[in-house]
Design a protein around this nucleic acid. Sequence first.
DNA 1: CTGAAAGCGCTTACAG
DNA 2: CTGAAAGCGCTTACAG
Lengths: 355, 355
Amino acid sequence: MKPATIRDVAQRADVSVASVSRVLNGAGPVTEATRQRVLAAVEALQYVPHSGARSLSTSKTNAVGVILPDLYGEFFSELIRGMDVAARALGYHLIVSSSHDDADEASAALRSMRGRVDGLIVLSPHLGAANLASGLAGRTPVLLMNGGAATDGRPSIVVDNHGGAVAAVEHLIASGRQRIAHIAGPAGNLEAEARLAGYLEAMAAAGLSTMVVDGTFTKASGQEAGEALVARADRPDAVFAANDNMAVGALLAFQDAGLRVPEDVAMVGFDDIPLAGLVRPALTTLKINIAGMGRNALERLVRLIGPAADTDTACEVVHPELVVRGSSIAFPPTTGAAGVASSNKQTPSLEGEKL
Amino acid sequence: MKPATIRDVAQRADVSVASVSRVLNGAGPVTEATRQRVLAAVEALQYVPHSGARSLSTSKTNAVGVILPDLYGEFFSELIRGMDVAARALGYHLIVSSSHDDADEASAALRSMRGRVDGLIVLSPHLGAANLASGLAGRTPVLLMNGGAATDGRPSIVVDNHGGAVAAVEHLIASGRQRIAHIAGPAGNLEAEARLAGYLEAMAAAGLSTMVVDGTFTKASGQEAGEALVARADRPDAVFAANDNMAVGALLAFQDAGLRVPEDVAMVGFDDIPLAGLVRPALTTLKINIAGMGRNALERLVRLIGPAADTDTACEVVHPELVVRGSSIAFPPTTGAAGVASSNKQTPSLEGEKL
DNA sequence: CTGAAAGCGCTTACAG
DNA sequence: CTGAAAGCGCTTACAG
């Protein structure tokens, strides 16, 4: 038994398929009586419109695609969560495709989604990804979240990675640190590069010499980087990691080596993933409202799909906010307050986060 | 300028639409010369087949839906990651819909996906969800992952929550604990209930009295529960939390209260999310290969979509494995090894996890 | 307010 | 090996 079609419903309700369509779409005038009969037939037949047929007639899919480089860690799940909420509210379905480390895989995913979605959100923090995405998408609207690539004239949302990094370094300097190391993100990643550039600039501006070790945005790489820093003769008294994941890894490496945070070394991350407020000491970081950014991205894409398509060519910049927590409290304390640094207790609050 | 259709391609290649279709689908015989001409035209026109039209002709969407109760925390992102990998390998798209706390929202999501997907994976750990899902899905194959509900004759994957809980309690008893508390998951959640039941049974079997506080599977709720336990006159010497999130929250609550883990209190979670191996002390837990389970679920659903549909009525049971880490090392140590409990260092390894 | 009919873009027997 | 044509299930002017 095949699923019921609009014709079956029409027949059972003794009306034309046009009327069934009108009732179901709330478009066009219908008598209340007709309405009721149609609805009853729909119910009886368990009728669900064929989305493909509908999309063929309307040239709309009511679906948007999200192309992600990865799906590890809390950053992306938070982002998807925000998008999902907005998508549901706007009547869109969310098609996700992740694990596209390189531009090739990302473009394959993009191709496979074309024609299946009304719009795309592309997170691809690699050089050239922006052009690629816009090229491949054809007429499909694309919202770029490619972290710093030139997005000239294309709708996009980028984080002010450079400014955030500068703020991190300045905060560390202000709290009395001098030997500030940076754990960098993966080479070729534009977000990582912008954060590195911000670090280098702020250090140069302060006349401090730099110390950079490489990482890959994972906790494990942060831990390794931390171990390398611990072993150095000129051990840093502060570490700014290019994301929270690595900062947490480095935090553990230092603590495992018997060093105290923030007494011996201060630690600052980037992103403010839920975990950041949870580790001890809680991690100072550059806060991005990740889920909010996801929601915003989806809402903007949907606007892009509509008639306003061509008017939106803006590159929206999200400015991360420095959130100072226990991991970078000034040491020696600049305030008269004693004991802050020696206490192992941080604010026990989880800030209401619901991870 | 509208996107090119198969007709445009046919015209440009000077063949019929049927031939274009054959080339594109690799079905039916075509001359190499025809093939080349068609491919060239496709390339020149940037042609992408309309998925709706194709789905209308073939009655296939090449998409599967995933209905989740939530998208917080690492459990679900790991699960989706596993599904995504499998989906891509099998040529399917993944439509996700989350935040369906109650059965109503889940069924709304399910309705909206019908006709848009070839199959559904439903995670809905609520009573009645199984029947609901199967009822609403109509002819769409459904793979249930509803954690313990009766799944009689319906394809499903469930975790052995009861067995895992028993193993957790027995481990704690074996390592010398007596006053073992349980932090329960949300009421009405079948996974949570099965874990609670396992705890109660194992405690009864050992002749120990029980101590249960409520939680909601979030870190924050685990922390609150931990604070409540710390404050009790009959403070427990061990805590088994219904998931890792809550165990981590409780761990922090105990540590913030100045208690030592595992010396003063042992801690055991459930799931083995990446974070479990990362907190200090590392968390003993019941390990589920989350991404692997996701991959498996998707592969099985795709098999369900095929001709083998009706032969699969199995309820596959996943048995979690007890992984003993620092948070529940026997104390006082049963081995002669000294210092284990007093050392703050846990295994520094991140176990290669890439969060 | 309602219905007959064209058309959306594809696939697939069926002839040739 | 190739093409003409029917058909998939919907929506939407267009008449009435």
